[in-house]
Design a protein around this nucleic acid. Structure first.
Lengths: 180, 180
DNA sequence: CCACGTTGGCTAACGGTGTAAGCCAATGCT
DNA sequence: AGCATTGGCTTACACCGTTAGCCAACGTGG
């Protein structure tokens, strides 16, 4: 028991999710409120509930879409990459810097896995594993490093003068699989 | 212009911060509301404002105290450590697992540095730099790795079967300074 | 053609949040 | 004795997510 949720979004629902994405990208996760979103859509907040059961569903739709986008970028980054680790790390950094608020949204708390589009999480993770030659433990270490660098930078936790390029390089060099 | 804030907390204020800490440790950051806190103290929410200017000040007091506690633990972990990197990593993990909600509170968003107790952030960071032999770039990479492992675990982002012990080991082995 | 179900709006309201304003009792200093 | 400080209080405001219930427009089947 407890499955479903595979239904694709109706068009109006997609519009709402798209508006939510604009709001989040423009003003951050904390700016996403049902009233502010409704305002953008020219409707009142309770009307949103005709299309989505609650705010969590909205966020999950946003997160699912972001996972898919991220997965696609990771996959293309790996195509014909001479240095897969550098390629995936670059793609990871680039995505987070292009969409800092979405990145935060999708990483700041536990996922509601059974309300996400099935498989998106794995699809986004797979290129990282692949770039590490299938070594899952090492892939997790690299992911942790990349996420740490990314979120600490987004949270302005490094000293202003810190050479983040150097820190990335040191980390990636160290974590690179030996035989490669 | 714009300094001050060095005044030590009055006793009643300390009680309030202590109660806030209990609330956060017991129920998480999102459970910390002025009304819930007041309830714990047997007073009404607006009365808290006689002691602290706003909720951010409360959180900053909490964060400052947590930094100091963390710094102390890191420092003692390094005393007589045969393997400083392993020691600091162990202390880092231990602190986060003993105080997951406080750890989250102090890492989930940018710091309000001029409302924190001056120096606490640096004091907590210094042992990490020291454990890496003063190599700041490498220290930042290690910190990013440790934070990534920690927060991804707290956020339940690794697969259930994942061997986190192995991932920690792989990461630390890779990041260990060569000559050591 | 008309009845009906679906879709997608609306308002009003509830209980939660942080916080400002203003009142007042107790304490302690001059 | 008078007064300032401390630390409570109530009331109120604007915001939040969400529920309930009403209603107009539309499409479809009898």
């Amino acid at each position: 028991m407890a499955e479903e949720q595979a239904a694709p979004l109706r068009p109006r629902t997609q519009q709402i999710v798209a508006a939510a994405r604009e709001l989040v990208e423009a003003e951050g996760v904390e700016a996403l409120s049902m009233r502010r979103l409704a305002e953008r859509l020219g409707i009142r907040a309770p009307s949103i509930y005709k299309h989505l059961p609650d705010k969590a569903a909205l966020e999950n739709a946003l997160i699912s879409a972001t996972f898919e986008e991220q997965a696609a970028e990771f996959e293309t980054a790996l195509v014909d990459a001479a240095d897969p680790l550098a390629a995936i790390a670059g793609a990871y950094r680039k995505f987070a810097h292009c969409h800092p608020h979405l990145y935060r949204l999708m990483t700041e708390r536990p996922l509601d896995r059974d309300r996400l589009t099935p498989g998106v999480e794995d699809r986004a993770a797979q290129p990282i594993v692949q770039a590490l030659g299938g070594d899952r433990d090492l892939a997790r270490a690299v992911w942790a490093f990349a996420h740490g660098m990314t979120i600490l930078e987004l949270n302005d936790r490094f000293p202003r003068h810190a050479d983040l390029e150097a820190a990335w390089q040191r980390g990636l060099d160290a974590l690179r699989p030996k035989g490669t």
